[in-house]
Write a protein that binds this DNA or RNA. Structure first.
Lengths: 353, 353
DNA sequence: TTTAGCACTCATTGAGCCTGAGTGCTAACC
DNA sequence: GGTTAGCACTCAGGCTCAATGAGTGCTAAA
């Protein structure tokens, strides 16, 4: 039986139960529904309807003499069909816009900062990950003097990503020499993917640099590190403390177990796995998630693309009783803004090539 | 009465009680002490000693028929005089050394990463903060091309700190033009403190850059942002979830309150305040800390210096029952390594000027 | 000075009971 | 046929109360 085949009244009752349960975290009784929904029928009628809704699998009962709580299927129907749109309020808009306008132009950081913001707005913990794709190439390598023995190594990638590192030299390096070395490095390594720097190239460089070949060591190390972090992106967890605000995490032992589980980067990546390849927003509710550990949780995930390539993901984690309406509203508002920003960025990049 | 005026036996008993309590988080009884310490006296004797220790203020009793727990004063004596050194084990050494050798040369990051490591090793949450002092000057400003409309702005400070930002231009900027602009910027702003860039300098630059003066906007913005973050350093909290592993945080409401308190950056800075100006390691136990919120907690703080200037702080947060012996051992081992590394860095910087 | 022994205290635990919220069902009503 | 009032029933949560046992202080003897 599809949700839309139900009577208007049943759907109203189901929505009311879900929203009430989301608010209170307590099983919802027939009396409360009769009073609050204004359907003009008695609690007995509601009881009959509720019994049917349970039989059809939209609701569950923790024990005989308790009220009803939504099943995963109930939440799913709510999220997909019943829920009304949440209007993001002034202050949420303001915070989001201020964030987007600040244009923290390093992509890595924009995503992790965005995770914090989302966690702040929603009141649930968030996960965020930047996935830099293999397509990006070395654009430039520059060594800039700090003092005569120290220099900053700067690696610029074709998509504008920048890595820098402070290095010390065995020999004094005057700035014009550094500039020369930078040119040699850039000429040899430009347009190479990070993971494809060849032995041949290295040998050439070693030859070209002569007694200054020691600068190759940090250069290659940075390249290796960036390549590795590209393949094993770190997923950042923020606002974990907010979990405690949810009554479902009042069981200390379980909560600790759950937080332990979230400590591990590999686990975090698996939390995000259902959204892989899905553009836009993905939601998993309760058991829908492949991970056992998340059977009592829901995850709202957003995948961000730049010119067809995935560049990052943000997710919000909450109990299945999460406030889908509000959180989705906030998430969508943010996602739209960010995507517009990314779009602009992409177009400007595009038009200039 | 000073702790060292006590009899050898009393001190042994006090140590044993503290260590037992640190392990179990349960009040310690006379029988347990009689059995485990091997003093060869009966529990009755221990009882007499314990009663005296309590009278002198080293111990407390939660209620008449319970065992004893250490007072703040007791912990203090333990930390200052009684505690034996903890020998850092192989694996802890290995992790610490690997970390230090990786030489994450950006100071900002070394401190925050260090916070994570310390939290991992100790099992308690950690705070970390980089305090860049006002002494540092602009060393160089470089604009590097990404494509014809985009460039990376790189700000290098005299202490090797680097900030970068991806910028878009209104006009195409060929690379030799960018190089020229970089030279103009660097010549005009070099050796200026971030907070002291003058209106005069800006006017000069504006004049010199002509129609390309739009690049000034991002440059000045980055300078402003870095200046602000210098004065209001962010204190980073890591491993907050580990608090839950401590039985003293089994009271959900109090724990949530505590975590809320730690959400605020200003509070975090106040947590670190007792270590300000103190080189080396500072410990506050229970009520010793000026903050009311920390009356049941202890804080171990380390201040890191480079050439006489404070450059960062790391702290571990735990219940007063924290395992001082182990944590201090780990903290000291790490601090020594980091200080040696910083020392080297400083010397090399020094010798080259 | 140490110890054995005893009376006492009190947090913790579990059993038993009560209460109230909520249900399902039935019979009457519209 | 749908709706409702009413009633018997269920069960989680909160309460009291007694039993348990870990631990203490004190005293008298070694």
């Amino acid at each position: 039986m599809e949700i839309m085949d139900l009577s208007e009244r049943k759907r109203k009752i189901l929505s009311a139960i879900i929203e009430n349960y989301i608010d209170t975290a307590e099983p919802v009784g027939s009396k409360a529904i009769a009073q609050t929904t204004g359907l003009g029928v008695s609690s007995a009628t509601i009881r009959n309807e509720m019994a049917e809704l349970e039989e059809m699998g939209w609701l569950e009962q923790p024990h005989t003499s308790a009220g009803r709580i939504p099943s995963s299927r109930g939440y799913r129907a709510y999220v997909d069909y019943l829920m009304q749109r949440y209007r993001v309020n002034e202050s949420e808009m303001a915070r989001t816009n201020a964030f987007l306008q600040s244009r923290i132009a390093e992509l890595e950081r924009i995503i992790t900062e965005a995770g914090k913001l989302i966690s702040d707005l929603s009141g649930y913990p968030s996960l965020s990950m930047t996935s830099r794709l293999h397509g990006t190439l070395i654009e430039r390598i520059e060594l800039m003097p700090v003092d005569s023995y120290q220099f900053v190594l700067i690696l610029v990638m074709s998509d504008g990503m920048v890595k820098n590192r402070l290095c010390r030299a065995r020999l004094p390096l005057p700035s014009d020499l550094l500039r020369e070395i930078s040119d040699v490095l850039t000429r040899n390594l430009r347009a190479t993917a990070l993971s494809e720097v060849s032995v041949h190239q290295i040998a050439l460089l070693q030859h070209a640099l002569g007694e200054y070949d020691f600068v190759l060591q940090p250069v290659l190390q940075v390249i290796r590190e960036v390549a590795i972090s590209t393949e094993n992106p770190e997923v950042i967890l923020g606002g974990e403390g907010r979990l405690l605000e949810q009554p479902e995490f009042h069981d200390l032992d379980k909560t600790r177990e759950f937080l332990d589980f979230l400590q591990d980067n590999e686990s975090r990546r698996q939390v995000l796995s259902p959204a892989e390849g899905h553009e836009g927003i993905t939601i998993t509710i309760g058991q829908e998630h492949p991970l056992q550990e998340l059977r009592d949780s829901s995850v709202i995930m957003g995948n961000y693309m730049l010119g067809g390539r995935p560049i990052g993901m943000i997710a919000i984690l909450g109990p299945t009783r999460m406030n889908y309406r509000r959180v989705l509203g906030q998430f969508e508002y943010f996602t739209n803004g960010l995507n517009k920003l990314l779009q602009e960025l992409f177009e400007s990049q595009d038009s200039s090539e």
